[in-house]
Nucleic acid binder design. Structure first.
Lengths: 239, 239
DNA sequence: CGGCTTCCTTGATATGGATCAACCTGACCG
DNA sequence: CGGTCAGGTTGATCCATATCAAGGAAGCCG
């Protein structure tokens, strides 16, 4: 790598232009790269435990990470789902008030806590970017509060499918040529969907069946969803 | 006001040391003060409507502001409650994805959008402070997602009372000499509590009665709450 | 191959909270 | 002073979702 090109690892990175790295120039990217380390996490493994002082920050390169909270008696709620190119880690605090767990196999580009914080102090543009991302997460969390507090089971499941359908279109990893059509893979089990939607897994299953019967979706495999008419699903999602 | 003292308005401000202003030095405070304007908003009045381009940012000096979202058919959810010295307004975006409404009479110290953004660009410490506040709001939103998705009506109401009881102790506007005792005024109607907790007002009312019968709280007036044993209430709150 | 296990579906039943309805209280006002 | 209205409580009933229970399908492994 020459002094005037970007690091190899970054050059071929699939999320480079959408991750926080996009806020860095070549030199800054080079110093970020110096502290970066790839890491693979298998589905089901905990990335950072609730209230445990985290040791690292990370970009999600591939896979899905769920942020969960649990009550004393074991009731659980997913309070955030993170997809590539989202950033993991709470700046300015020792520990996250939730557990981060791999929902699928996950590929991370991680940064040791202390070193990352040093970089952050050096490049104000990076903090600005993190701030902006955090505001978007807050908006998403509030949208989800509306869903959890006021939507019916049917609307909750339809809303979740809309979320994934829109992601699929945006990312372009699926057909988006026809604006009203979508197709994607469900990255969560029925149990995880239930934990995200504040339902039981049986109710999620029943609503999936109901959406299929109504023709709003079709399921090739349990996890392969086709939405023939986005508008129809949007209507069922309640907003 | 001399060149070396802080502005009069700020000098006597009750929230100065806890609001975002605390991140400013005297000179910076002076330029913030130049663009500041006091504003009174009556209970029930809308401060900024959903998706309408906001015209101002503001510190809450007194009173309570509710952030609400509504579904097409009128179902409503409060997605955030803001108390003094919280800051109102979404930076880096034209409009908030929610309505901000005065839950009680509210006193604001407001700043015109353009001017505030100029100040923000000039003083990086201010943006850092807003970032930090936003992270705390995100944590609170996620805590509330757990409540909305997984807690029972009883636990929801008890949790809300805990929230206010803790605020009352921290602010010191009430007896905190005995750590297990609290007393405060409910700033919300039963209907607003219901919208915050994802319940109906009848259910809130019944749970309040139930908590009173159980001796977990006592009510002088409908809105005057005494918590004789914080631990008892905490237990009923479910975590 | 048989026997796990994980994920999912479907059925029967129970129940917490919603809904519908009546009424109480205090504040405000002509 | 009576009327109205906003806020709150309480009762009766209903229903959406939870809970309990059984079984199917696919993958894995001895």
């Amino acid at each position: 790598m020459s002094a005037h090109s970007i690091p190899d690892r970054c050059e071929h990175c699939t999320i480079r232009h959408r991750a926080i790295c996009a806020a860095l120039n070549k030199d800054e990217l080079t110093s970020m790269n110096r502290i970066a380390r790839q890491r693979l996490v298998n589905a089901g493994q905990v990335i950072s435990a609730d209230s445990e002082p985290g040791i690292a920050f990370a970009n999600i390169v591939s896979g899905v990470v769920k942020l969960t909270k649990m009550l004393a008696d074991g009731r659980q709620q997913i309070v955030g789902l993170q997809f590539p190119p989202d950033f993991l880690g709470r700046t300015f605090m020792d520990a996250n008030p939730f557990t981060a767990e791999a929902a699928t196999d996950v590929e991370l580009c991680s940064f040791p806590k202390k070193e990352f914080e040093a970089v952050l102090r050096r490049y104000p543009g990076l903090e600005h970017r993190l701030f902006s991302d955090t505001l978007n997460e807050l908006d998403a969390a509030r949208e989800w509060m509306l869903l959890l507090g006021r939507k019916t089971a049917q609307e909750k499941v339809a809303s979740f499918l809309m979320l994934l359908a829109n992601r699929a279109s945006n990312v372009g990893c699926s057909h988006s040529d026809e604006l009203h059509f979508a197709q994607f893979h469900l990255p969560l089990t029925r149990a995880d969907m239930a934990d995200y939607l504040g339902l039981t897994l049986e109710t999620v299953s029943r609503q999936m069946t109901r959406l299929r019967s109504a023709g709003a979706i079709s399921l090739a495999e349990n996890r392969e969803v086709v939405v023939p008419e986005m508008d129809r699903l949007r209507e069922l999602a309640g907003d």
